[in-house]
């Protein structure tokens, strides 16, 4: 649908590179302000891709996860020199609080990035990449992927009919319900294995196992991929350089450093944001061409 538009139109390899880098730097750069900026950039990407719909759907679980980390860290870790408060005889330190906050931000940043991953890296693109690495394992994944919706429907039918025979997961004691559930899954398994013999026949009838396989799925590596890969690599090299020379992370333990971003940190922040927002260039470009098209019509 939108696979030929903007960010989504990029080659799976380009997309993989983007996410590999985005995640790696999201873990390496351990500075609350940089991570906050990275998170904001990921949100902007989300807003561009689907108006933030998918992101909103995941806000509550994400917020709960981050809150847990935020609360837990000071309770578990008592390192740090600045004690804020004694909880019984348990010291709550400023350093630990700040560390927890940074960790939570890092997780938040990652999860937000992953929401865009689901929108951009379709299963087809992922399987294309996977089949480059391991054609057979990718075929297994593709076969299982094709089977899941069919099995899910069968399972629902099975639960419906078996309920009328008194084999149900909604009535009876917990053990009885678990027992019934397993009976239903076992029936589904045996039924599917029986049917899958025919599927295996169908594979062989179409020449599976007669020699080397090739791959049909193809994505063209276009000039826009070339540009994107070059720009991403440039950003990555810059970020790595900055990080290797000791910028882009904050000293927390044993005593809290300053939040202030010195020049190196500023470069890291700018580089990371640029990296995350880069593919949106294509989003803007393609959007513009639509706008001009609309005026003409």
């Amino acid at each position: 649908m939108t696979d030929s538009f903007g960010f989504r139109s990029l080659h799976p390899f380009t997309i993989l590179l983007y996410y590999a880098g985005g995640i790696t730097f999201g873990m390496l750069l351990f500075h609350p302000l940089i991570l906050l900026a990275g998170w904001a950039a990921a949100v902007v990407v989300n807003l561009h891709l689907d108006g933030g719909r998918e992101w909103r759907r995941w806000t509550v679980p994400m917020a709960v996860g981050c809150l847990l980390i935020l609360l837990m860290n000071p309770i578990l870790s008592h390192r740090g020199r600045t004690v804020l408060y004694y909880f019984g005889d348990m010291p709550i330190t400023l350093e630990s609080v700040v560390y927890g906050m940074t960790l939570a931000l890092s997780m938040l940043n990652l999860l937000t990035l992953f929401i865009t991953y689901r929108l951009v890296m379709s299963e087809q693109k992922f399987l294309f990449l996977f089949s480059r690495l391991s054609p057979k394992a990718a075929l297994v994944a593709m076969m299982a992927l094709g089977m899941v919706p069919r099995l899910r429907r069968r399972l629902q039918e099975l639960m419906l009919i078996q309920r009328s025979r008194g084999i149900t997961v909604t009535e009876g004691s917990l053990a009885q319900r678990a027992r019934n559930g397993t009976r239903i899954v076992g029936t589904l398994l045996s039924w599917t294995l029986e049917d899958a013999l025919q599927t295996a026949d169908s594979m062989q009838a179409r020449g599976y196992g007669t020699g080397r396989r090739s791959g049909y799925a193809g994505f063209r590596f276009r000039s826009r991929d070339m540009w994107t890969v070059s720009a991403l690599t440039a950003c990555a090299v810059l970020l790595l350089g900055v990080w290797a020379s000791g910028y882009g992370f904050m000293k927390v333990y044993p005593n809290l450093g300053s939040f202030r971003l010195i020049t190196g940190d500023q470069v890291a922040l700018a580089g990371y944001i640029t990296y995350l927002l880069l593919p949106l260039g294509w989003e803007w470009r393609d959007r513009k061409s639509w706008r001009t098209l609309k005026y003409k019509m």
Binding site: M142, L145, T199, S202, M203, R206, G207, Y216, G218
Partner: peptide, 25 residues
């Protein structure tokens, strides 16, 4: 009809046999 389908999408299904023969894209 169900049991003969091997992979997930119509396009992959149609291509499956040709892939087995190692045909060029």
């Amino acid at each position: 009809p169900d049991n003969q389908l091997v992979v997930d999408t119509v396009e992959h299904e149609l291509a499956f046999g040709m892939e087995n023969f190692g045909l060029d894209r």
